[in-house]
Design a protein around this nucleic acid. Structure first.
Lengths: 157, 157
DNA sequence: CAGTATCCCAAGCGATACTG
DNA sequence: CAGTATCGCTTGGGATACTG
């Protein structure tokens, strides 16, 4: 009867995702990797994270397939390792953007946000919008309805 | 020279937002409150969270202005307290949706996602999209450019 | 440079008992 | 019912030293 019993914490996609990225550092690591910070020491320095923690976060992200470690060699230089987002990792970028957008609006000072994200092709600022399959735009405070999906454990009787 | 020095961890909107919601429980509390679970014991039972932790999370969310506690009284019943999202709190819903969307795609089993979110007005499923101010849709793996914003501490010289 | 290993502390969390 | 208080465990995290 309560539609939200479908939302049991075990299978909920939000819960599962947060298990992966819901700690103090992981999202920031992803942010930096997405922004082209690719080497271990560079990440450690820029984030101010302890090296062992960075190591374990990168390992988890790599296990989950969000980040891959590859070797590369600049001409004449010795081999180096770098981290890059995989496909699934890049698909997290919209998550980073919405979070940033919310923070820009509600947590940045009167000076405005410290960073602006633009569409690289046209230079216009980027934003996220909520739309439905009928093409309606839902705005910031959308009217939503939840229903059990195909993977629901709740019988629809 | 490095555009990402603008992204110092102190002012970054992602970092600031994650300080607020970047732990194991807060997002799930927000999810439940957004879904109409409004009373303390109901939240505690549904989430399986320890009561003291729930208490402290609600306090933090309330301090931050994402959630407000109000008293209400059903006719004939005694007074009760309930939590509701404030305006800024409701603006976090798109964050919940993108996270859920990503988890649906990458972390749910072959059965599919346990919950589907629909536009309440038309019943069509909801999704988030990245667009730029020029109206281009950017897709899952967008080509982005970062620039220091007005609140950047980095001189633009 | 790119990590891993160790040590220790602080925060987060769960269980439980208690109060209005 | 709606919380707060207390306790002890467990995890996360910082500093530092060490290895290939």
């Amino acid at each position: 009867m309560n539609p939200f019993s479908a939302y049991d914490s075990g299978t909920c996609s939000i819960a599962r995702t947060m298990e992966l990225i819901g700690d103090r550092w992981t999202i920031l690591v992803l942010r930096d990797v997405a922004n082209g910070v690719r080497r271990f020491d560079e990440l450690a320095g820029h984030l101010g994270i302890a090296r062992n923690v960075l190591s374990s976060r990168l390992a988890r992200l790599s296990d989950a397939g969000l980040v891959e470690r590859t070797a590369y060699r600049e001409p004449g230089a010795r081999e180096r390792l770098e981290y890059r987002l995989t496909g699934p990792g890049r698909e997290l970028i919209p998550v980073l953007i919405v979070i940033m957008q919310w923070g820009d609006r509600h947590l940045s000072g009167p000076e405005g946000p410290p960073v602006v994200v633009r569409h690289d092709d046209c230079g216009a600022p980027v934003r996220t919008t909520l739309t439905c399959a009928e093409g309606h735009e839902l705005g910031d405070r959308p009217r939503l309805r939840l229903e059990p999906g195909p993977g629901s454990r709740v019988r629809s009787s």
